[in-house]
Amino acid sequence: MGPSPAEIIRTLVAGRLPGLVHLAHRPGPHHVRHVTDPEGRVLLLVPVVSDLAAALRPVDGDEDVAIVLDVLDLPPAAGAPSLGRAWVSGWAVELGGAEARAAAQDFAAVEPTGDLLDLGRRFRLFRFEVAEARWERADDVRRVDPDVYAGAEPDPLHPIEAELLADLADHHGDEVSAYLRRHFGLVADDPADAPRVVRMDRYGLVVALGGPGARRRARLAFPAPVADHAELVRLLHPMICPRAAAG
């Protein structure tokens, strides 16, 4: 079992990856600083003096602007497969007063930037509820119901995935390789079957089999989805501690 399309979209648009926004009938795209709040609504932190701020200015009496946020996954390590691309769209509205202050707290929970202290002067916050969500991977596009998207959660390991993979490779490489060889029944010390962990999520590990550039991959599922880093460490203990694995 792996993450659902809704969970992947929530993970990609959570705010840890660079985003582009496209606006209907306006020039673009524009780079944007964004996060999502606990309900999955998209928050945009926009400089007052910018092309994006001008493009988000309503025209013809409209109070909101149709917008699409486009986020492409950045694989955390060489040879790691991409999670693909997420597209979420809705109608962006500028926030003010108490709404802006509450949204700034949601933004800071993901990206604690000092620029939030300049809201109303140098920066503005915009928000939109997701009316359409799409996940694109390997030329396959899947639409996700907005309510399903809103009910999903971003993966808790994604923000530290690159760090975790580097730690496994740099400090526990031999133990991890030996464990994976046993698990998948691979011939010991055969370079053609050298296993490496190339991605991880709350549901398990993605393992590449073979040397650099190899495309054979397998999934090692956890007994249950992990909630945080501490729970992941407990699950990985038998992998990095041969004595625990033997027990």
Rank of each mutant, 00 (worst) to 15 (best):
91 W>G: 06
52 L>A: 00
186 L>W: 02
101 R>I: 04
77 A>H: 03
138 A>E: 13
92 A>L: 08
156 P>Y: 00
16 R>F: 14
220 L>W: 05
130 V>S: 11
241 C>K: 08
232 L>R: 04
221 A>G: 11
167 D>H: 12
194 A>W: 05
90 G>T: 08
61 G>I: 11
2 G>T: 15
174 D>Y: 04
168 L>W: 06
79 G>V: 11
97 G>A: 00
34 H>D: 09
214 A>P: 05
120 G>T: 01
127 R>V: 01
122 R>Q: 09
209 L>D: 03
107 F>P: 00
98 A>F: 05
189 D>F: 15
99 E>D: 15
240 I>F: 04
155 D>M: 03
169 A>I: 05
214 A>G: 13
244 A>I: 05
114 G>I: 12
34 H>K: 02
160 I>Y: 07
163 E>V: 04
149 Y>V: 14
21 V>Y: 01
185 G>F: 04
130 V>D: 03
135 W>I: 03
27 P>R: 10
143 R>S: 15
84 G>L: 06
80 A>D: 11
230 A>V: 13
188 A>I: 13
17 L>Y: 12
133 A>H: 01
102 A>R: 12
18 P>I: 10
103 A>D: 01
162 A>K: 05
244 A>E: 03
213 G>V: 04
90 G>Q: 10
33 R>Y: 15
5 P>A: 13
135 W>F: 09
28 G>V: 09
116 L>H: 01
203 Y>P: 08
140 D>M: 07
91 W>Y: 13
47 P>Q: 02
66 A>F: 15
201 D>R: 07
167 D>L: 14
66 A>P: 15
59 V>F: 13
177 S>I: 05
64 D>Y: 09
132 E>S: 14
123 F>V: 03
41 R>S: 15
185 G>V: 11
182 R>W: 10
97 G>V: 00
35 V>P: 00
82 S>Y: 09
154 P>V: 12
146 P>G: 11
229 H>E: 14
173 G>S: 07
159 P>G: 10
60 D>Y: 08
176 V>G: 01
222 F>K: 02
21 V>E: 07
31 H>W: 15
10 R>G: 01
155 D>H: 04
143 R>P: 05
195 P>A: 03
130 V>P: 06
29 P>D: 02
209 L>A: 03
217 R>M: 15
58 P>Y: 08
86 A>I: 14
16 R>C: 07
103 A>W: 00
146 P>D: 10
37 D>P: 12
15 G>C: 05
18 P>F: 12
187 V>M: 10
171 H>E: 13
29 P>G: 02
224 A>S: 14
226 V>S: 00
22 H>G: 09
45 L>I: 02
13 V>L: 07
17 L>F: 12
68 V>R: 11
76 P>D: 08
166 A>R: 09
80 A>H: 11
